[in-house]
Design a binder for these strands. Sequence first.
RNA 1: GGGGACGUAGCUCAACUGGUUAGAGCACCGGCCUGUCACGCCGGAGGUUGCGGGUUCGAGCCCCGUCGUCCUCGCCA
Length: 586
Amino acid sequence: MLKRTHNCGELTAKQVGETVILNGWVDAYRDFGGLVFIDLRDRYGITQVVFEPDQGEALMNAARELRSEFCLGVKGVVAKRLAGKENPKLATGEVEVRVTELSVFNKSATPPFDIQAGDANEEVRLKYRYLDLRRPELQQVFVMRHTMNQVMRKSLSDQGFLEFETPILGRSTPEGARDFLVPSRLHKGHFYALPQSPQLYKQILMMSGMDRYFQIARCFRDEDLRANRQPEFTQLDVEMSFVQDEDIMTAMEPLVANLAKEFTGSAPTLPLPRIDYKDAMERYGVDRPDLRFGVEIHDLADIAPKTTFQVIQIALSNGGRVRGLCAPGAGAKYSRKDLDGLTAYVGEFGAKGLIWLKVEDEGFAGPTAKFFPAEVQAEMKERFGAKTGDMIFAVAGPEAVTHQALSNLRIRLGAELELYDPKSYHYSWVVRFPLLHWDAEEKRYVAEHHPFTMPLPEDLPLLETDPSKVRAQAYDLVINGEECGGGTIRCHDPAIQARIFELLGLTPEQAQEKFGFLLSALSFGAPPHGGIALGVDRLVMLFAGLTNIRDCIAFPKTARGYDLMTGAPGEVDFKQLRELYVRVVE
RNA sequence: GGGGACGUAGCUCAACUGGUUAGAGCACCGGCCUGUCACGCCGGAGGUUGCGGGUUCGAGCCCCGUCGUCCUCGCCA
C-alpha cells in the first residue's frame, strides 16, 4: 500500500525535490490527453498532482481513468510549479506532485450530487451523509466541535471537576418532555426511559460526595423538531456541591470565556452581566434577549388617558398592555409596503395590529399619528430617546402578545436596520426565573425549569401563599439571543422538596413512587448543591455561524425524526416484539 | 395536531393563460487536447414531472388524497 508521508494540506516549497506519498480523494480532474491534473483532497487540504507522459503510457492511461471521489495513493516528487502557474487559492498552491506511481484504493460510483458545489437539496445530502461530510465546510464544523469538547474538558478538569458517565437506560419520571421508552425484555410491561438529561444522577453524585461533576451527555426528548432542536442532543452537564447560584455562574464563566477566546478571538469581560428575568421581560419581551443592540421596550399605559385611541383603551381595560419600541433610522428605510409586512409579522404572534409612527421635525407621521396630541408626542419622544428619522412601533393587547410581538419585532428590526455587527457576540446571564406557573388546562402548577429547583430564600413563604410569585435560584446563559444553557440550585431540603411536589399535584405516595430514591438520598445528609447544562450543539451552531443544528451534528434527523441515511426508525420482526411483550396496535 | 413553502433528468433549475416531441447548465458516456486549477472543443445518452385518484378533447400546470423535505405555532431545551 502507498502509505502517506504527508497530508494534502502541508506541502510547500520547503519539500521541493522530496519524494512523497499522498492519500486522498479526487476533488477534481483536468484531463488534457497528454497531461492530467488531479486535485487530491483529504481533511487537511488539497494538493495538485500531475501526470506527465515521461512516466510511461501505462501510468497516463491509468490517470485518464480517474474520476471524482476515487480514493487514491500517489507517489511522486514535489516540484515547484512553473513560473506564473501558482494557485494562490490553495495553501499548497506553490507546488505540485509529479506522480511516478498511482494506486487506486477504490473507484467511486458517480456521486449523486456535486460535493464541491455543496448546493444540493438537504434531503439528498442527508441520504448520502458520508459524501456530504467530505465537504471541507462541514469538516471544519466538526473540527470545531472536537475543539469545543477539548476546551470544555480541560477548563472543567483544571477546576477540579470529575467526568462521569451516567445510565442511558433510566426510569421515566413525570414532568418535562415526553420520554423515549425502551421496553424491558426481562420485565413484562415495564419500560426504561432514555434520559432527558442526567439530572437526578448528577444530584445523587453530589450526595455521594463527588463535589464537582461534569459530563458531555447525550440527552433524549421525544418532542417535535425545529431548526435548533433535535430529539437527541448533547449537553455539557455540570453539578457542584456547597454552592449558591453565584458560585455556579462564577465557575462557568472561565469556560465561557475560553470558548469565546478560542472561537471568536476575544473573550468577554467577566463577570458577565446578570439580568433579572423580570427586567428581561419588561425591557426586551423575552427571557433570552439579544443584547448585541439596545432598542428597549417601554410601557405606554400612562399616556393612554391622553389619547383618544380606542385600540389602546380597549387593550388596557381588558387587562392588557400597551408597549412599544423605537427603531433608529427606520423612517427612511421602510416603505408603506414594508410597514404592512411588519404588521403582518407581528400578526403571527397574535397582535391585532401594529401602531407605527414616523418621527419627523413637525411631529409624528402615520395613519394613527392623529391620536397622539403634541404633548404626548413630546413625552413619547423623550421616553424612547427618539430622534427625527426614527420610528416608534407599538402594540396593544394581552401581555403575552405584546411580549412576543415586540420581542420578535425587535430582533427583526435589529437585523434589518443593521443595528449590530452580525459577527459580534454578547454573553449574559438571565437570573431569578419564576419557580412555577399555573397550568389552567391541567389545573396544577408546573415547574418552570424542573421540579428539583430551590426557591430564593426570601420567597420561601410565598410557597404557601402565592406559589406563582416564587422566584427560583435559576439562571440561563444567553448568547446573542439564544438560550445556550440553564441551571438551578437544587432543593436539598426534603421538606421544601416535598412541598414543591405537592404543588405540582403529586401525592406523597406518587412522589415516593417516582422519586423515592431522591427523597431517600436527601435524607442522608445531602449537601447544598446546584448545577447547569450547556447546549453543546447550539454552542457549535452559534460559534460556527450556522442557522441550523443539523449542520453541526454528524448524523442528524429530519423534522419528522427520520435518519435518511439508515432509514431509522424502522420496523422490527414480530419475534423481537414478542420477546418484549409489545404489540403494534392500529 | 395546526399553518406556510416546496417536490420536473444524477444535481441545480426553466417550461406563458391548461395546448406540438418537457428544456438549460453541471455531472455522466464517446472523441480531441501538454499547463490546467469552474480547463476547453465536438458528439451522445439520460424523464412514471414524488405517488394515487379526479376534472378536461388535452394536465408538469387545476381539484382531492397521500408521502417526503424545510420553516413555524402548539410542545420542548
